[in-house]
């Protein structure tokens, strides 16, 4: 049905490649509701269910909660983002 993944060029980075590369790294997970979770990615699965450590919950840019460990159900996830070293916040 789909013709994807036939060509693999040097610049291609598939979702699977991305997920492999971010384990154990600091990430931002944004939910469809607009809530952000910042923490260290422990692991994830094919549903985009996510386990994170040292998680901070931000609502409208404000820190609302902290969790030692957190499981996020994948259906709520809008994106998973890497975090740049700089803590510059454009908010």
């Amino acid at each position: 049905m789909s013709g994807t993944g036939e060509k693999v060029t040097g610049t291609t980075k598939t979702p699977t490649d991305f997920l492999k590369s971010i384990r154990g790294k600091p990430v931002v997970v944004k939910l469809n509701s607009g809530v952000d979770y910042r923490g260290i990615l422990t692991c994830l699965d094919g549903y985009m269910n996510i386990a994170m450590e040292q998680t901070e919950e931000y609502v409208n840019g404000q820190l609302k909660n902290k969790y030692g460990d957190a499981f996020i159900r994948g259906n709520n996830v809008l994106y998973i983002s890497t975090v740049k070293r700089t803590l510059a916040d454009g908010a």
Binding site: P15, F18, L19, V28, N32, M48, G74, N75, V77, L78, Y79, I80, S81, T82, V83, K84, G90, A91
Partner: peptide, 13 residues
């Protein structure tokens, strides 16, 4: 406006 380095965007929405 938010700037992001690299993301995996969920295709769902």
């Amino acid at each position: 406006v938010t700037k992001l380095d690299q993301i995996l965007l969920n295709g769902n929405n």
